[in-house]
Design a protein around this nucleic acid. Structure first.
Lengths: 191, 191
DNA sequence: TAAGATAATGACACTTGTGTCACTTTGAAT
DNA sequence: ATTCAAAGTGACACAAGTGTCATTATCTTA
């Protein structure tokens, strides 16, 4: 017994993603979003009180999907296969790097009373880290990964590499192959 | 036969750097800068037409200093020593990563007639790349660096690593040592 | 087909930043 | 001491984003 909605939440998030990845957090405005959705700006306020609330909800949505996809990865196979599978996975979800950066750009306000999206985001973050830690620990146990390297640096290196700008347009598969090689064996020749 | 200035250019750039590195390009405003310098906003307009012009000038200034410092590095010693010297250097100038990112955030306008700061910035960028390329090429000639890895990816890996967030507060020297090790020998144990 | 619940709209008041400029202040040179 | 060029100021008009809300539109169901 009500009017039909002109847009769904997933549609909203799709447009949000485009704007966020294209222009970044600061340039994101309800005006742009509304005109992209061909909807009045006021209507968005019916569902989200402001920019930060919408973006938080969007990030939760994205992280959720990311973790879900990650959990569906094939967990069989030896460690090396699994590590490379994970690297491929991260590359095929390369927006995750920008998304994680946006999380830190949302100003922390002490407004929401109970479990706000902000807190939930942190939970997801920790959850993601745990998942990766498990794999790394396994690698160390199997003595494939050097034991004296901290998990933090290994995780950091893997995540950071997806953000390396490919200025010279090297083909994606060659690019990824090189990264895998450097991460595992380094850039030096064997002596 | 004129009044004394309340602030010098280097002072202006110092404050600019603080604001840019702290809050990023988008949040940078003349208001904040003026209040940080304890000067009226209008006075800054005496020297720079707008935010973009000031930031361009600042970036030129910073890149200049960076390249100058870089050129003063000890160029003797074998390749490995030199590479590690460069990595140490980049880490001790870790703001360079954020500065390079800001360059891409300045909107490109077709206003300035001749050699604008924007073009000069590109020149510096290319210049910097050349300097590093030379070292890498030498490494390849000396057969220390694997020949089949593209310079782009080697440079990218080195630069990107300085931006890895050290969430767990691992001591700087241990952190850098790990990065050097991974970059050169990888994270896998020798089989 | 009329009711009424919900969706959407657009105008309003407010905030923050921008760029300009007539005016005031300052201090070195005469 | 006076002059005056350059430095500095703050008010003004404008632009763009924000959040609100009375009003209008649309769809379902009874």
């Amino acid at each position: 017994m009500a009017r039909e909605r002109k847009f769904t939440n997933p549609e909203l998030f799709k447009a949000t993603k485009l704007l966020l990845i294209g222009d970044g957090y600061d340039s994101f405005t309800f005006s742009k979003l509304a005109s992209m959705m061909e909807v009045s700006r006021g209507s968005i306020y019916k569902y989200y009180e402001n920019k930060d609330e919408l973006i938080s909800a969007f990030l939760v949505y994205e992280m959720n999907r990311f973790l879900q996809d990650f959990n569906e990865l094939d967990k069989s196979g030896d460690f090396k296969t699994q590590l490379f599978l994970v690297i491929d996975f991260i590359f095929s979800h390369s927006e995750i790097h920008q998304i994680l950066e946006i999380i830190n750009q949302i100003p922390k306000k002490s407004n929401n009373p109970y479990l706000s999206n902000q807190t939930r985001l942190k939970t997801y973050y920790v959850e993601m880290y745990k998942q990766f830690q498990i794999i790394i620990e396994q690698g160390k146990k199997e003595k494939v990964i050097k034991n004296h390297l901290s998990n933090a640096i290994i995780l950091g290196m893997i995540f950071q590499t997806i953000a390396i700008p490919n200025h010279f347009g090297i083909p994606q598969d060659q690019w990824i192959a090189s990264i895998k090689e450097i991460l595992s064996e380094g850039m030096f020749t064997k002596d």
